[in-house]
Design a protein around this nucleic acid. Structure first.
Lengths: 122, 122
DNA sequence: ATCATTGTATTAAGGCCTTAATACAATGAT
DNA sequence: ATCATTGTATTAAGGCCTTAATACAATGAT
């Protein structure tokens, strides 16, 4: 999964989101040692400060932790990751449905559009 | 539909999105005379400049047009609205599915979560 | 023992976004 | 004829975001 950043939202917020995704999907597994701030910044083509900012926020939420001079690691709390994954999914579904209903689509429309696009994507 | 603005994205971008929603859903119908910039700004609790910026962008995309001293109107091009509505829907479905698949959910998971939440929302 | 690597901190500069305060010409209502 | 309302334009200030350039203590590998 490449780092895909747009300019319509703060970069650090997008970094948080993508790190969460990588952790919840298992790309960065339980207890995994993350690349260093500088390496992650290089990967994502952003300033180390910006990456550091994102990682600090992830740390506040408990999803990662850092050992001062050793590195940063994905949490070992399996349940926390599971709950985060659930939360993110609920948020996605909720926002999606809200917008589609606001746009004026109905249950059937939504399900059929979704089915069509799923066929394309999988 | 209340103006619902968050601080995690530029306000003017959110205004554009919500105006598009109002137009595509018919809250602002074909040819409708919009409230003045100042009134819309007051409604949304933003600075008139910010609302003006959003409206100017909507005008570039052709969804509204302005008559210098008379006011601003929703386009009378029924087809353009229809196409915009389609485009917005496709974008929503696409982003939603992309994130859910990235999170590691499968077709069945997505459809069942969606069904559950649809029951709650309708 | 030395040295590269780790997370972390600080300061300065520039950019975009938002607000605020004005201003103006053209129109429509009075 | 007068005047409020329309979209539009300009300038200044402040805030947050991002980058850049450094710096430092602690650790692990050599």
């Amino acid at each position: 999964m490449p780092w895909n950043l747009t300019s319509d939202r703060p970069i650090y917020a997008q970094l948080i989101e993508q790190m969460e995704l990588k952790i919840c999907s298992g790309i960065y597994p339980l207890g995994f040692k993350l690349p260093s701030v500088r390496d992650l910044a290089r990967e994502a083509s952003v300033n180390p400060n910006t990456m550091q900012r994102a990682l600090a926020r992830l740390e506040e939420s408990g999803l990662v932790y850092s050992v001062r001079t050793s590195g940063r690691f994905v949490t070992e709390d399996k349940n926390m990751i599971k709950e985060t994954k659930k939360r993110l999914a609920r948020e996605q579904v909720n926002e999606f449905l809200k917008k589609m209903l606001d746009l004026g689509f109905e249950r059937e429309d939504i399900l059929s559009m979704l089915g069509d696009m799923l066929k394309e994507m999988i």
